[in-house]
Design a protein around this nucleic acid. Structure first.
Lengths: 236, 236
DNA sequence: GGATTTAGGTGATAATAGTCATCTAATTGG
DNA sequence: CCAATTAGATGACTATTATCACCTAAATCC
């Protein structure tokens, strides 16, 4: 039977949340539409009242899931070295590694996203950009492009580290991967900080950018303004 | 009809190679047994004369494919800074990113390997260890565990970078990811080298370890001696 | 060289996949 | 308050899936 508008929106959201969990823990190809609907407390038939296809669900799930992740990072993001350490400490922790339901979609379904359709890759790419911009706020460079460079490297290292730590069946090595990455990234930022101290710089606000911008609700279309990635190389 | 022993072994190898290519380009769950057999020039029925299940094929494919990758890295691995630069230059190149058929299984199917069975994860873990040991040969530390730390960080960063560069739909950003990672890893090793120069050290041969050791042919059982990963933290 | 073994083809199995038609009851628009 | 709309359930349809039984012809073993 028909449901109220509020209920419908709630249901749609419930499907998206169930999809996010299922996709992250069982993979995209490993999760059926019926399974997701059941997890949302529904039967399989009603699915197509909310989404035109599984692919569309995947794309929207990716957008929503990335947004959640970006927001979480964004609220944690201060300027301080300590808040940065807290962030990598959290993201590169054993608990985070073992939490296969939550966490970043780029980690949980990275190699599947490579083969995803255009809308899904767009959402994933936008999410990546967004996280880079959040992390760049931590990087104490006068030059925004230098901060961006360090942010990109920090993010890809974290993604690689968590992914590998989940694969490795030797707990000691798995832990060591997280440990090593934590320490190296911490010292990377510390180095940037001490360099910044020697050349007293303009307030770090200057390196602030758009943190996240996506149409408040992708509805049934995922489209985000393409952000032209400046290929700025600030390096040694 | 029955085939000669040599032919049978050749066929088995052909299936493994076809599986490697198919899994890398379409994912594990995205590739059917029939599809692999067809790519090997066979029909689907004969599959179970060679492998007990798809899972077993996946595990062996992972072992073989990792071995190939490790061997390729191993022959390239000299002590010189230049050969290290060549290696990351190659692995973090646009051509390597766009070659979805070849390359490292950890990149091509990373998030799927997380959910793979024990034998497959074992093969992947062993492969990871092997590559770490190859890369560690490049790291000019007196302390083997320090070399290992840098090798681990280098490897996970590369894996994360190539994976993400394959997802990102913005070519400029995708290239920048590779670029940034290349430069940061090069300077990481350069720093280690200059540090090593200041404290003249014992010959780097001392940091050499077992490069790769797996039963020459896993046959129908993947088992590799577990290498206890020393959780050595040589860091700043 | 005859008996046995077996690689691989053919075909069938049962399960699961994504998608859609149809029905219903209730909400919404007027 | 009646008519039009529609959220969701039921059930079906078609592909595709992993797996296996069976057959055949050739290689291997004694």
């Amino acid at each position: 039977m028909k449901r109220s508008k509020a209920e419908t929106a709630q249901t749609r959201r419930r499907i998206l949340d169930a999809a996010a969990q299922a996709f992250k823990s069982n993979g995209i190809q490993g999760t059926g539409v019926a399974e997701i609907m059941a997890a949302a407390g529904l039967t399989h038939g009603g699915f197509y009242r909310h989404f035109a296809s599984k692919d569309q669900l995947v794309a929207e799930m990716c957008a929503v899931s990335m947004d959640i992740f970006v927001d979480a990072a964004g609220t944690a993001a201060g300027m301080s070295h300590e808040s940065f350490l807290e962030y990598i400490e959290h993201t590169l922790s054993a608990e985070y590694r073992d939490d296969t339901l939550g966490g970043c979609p780029l980690v949980a379904m990275g190699s599947e996203l490579v083969r995803a359709d255009a809308a899904t890759r767009r959402a994933a790419s936008q999410g990546f950009e967004d996280i880079v911009n959040v992390i760049a706020k931590w990087m104490p460079f006068e030059d925004p492009s230098a901060a961006r460079v360090d942010a990109i490297f920090t993010l890809v290292s974290m993604i690689g580290a968590v992914t590998m730590s989940r694969i490795i069946d030797n707990p000691e090595l798995s832990n060591q991967i997280l440990d090593v990455t934590k320490k190296r990234l911490a010292s990377l930022r510390a180095k940037a900080r001490s360099a910044a101290k020697q050349h007293p710089v303009s307030p770090p606000e200057s390196s602030q950018r758009r943190i996240k911008q996506r149409p408040a609700r992708p509805g049934s279309k995922i489209q985000s303004k393409r952000t032209s990635a400046k290929s700025a190389n600030a390096d040694d």
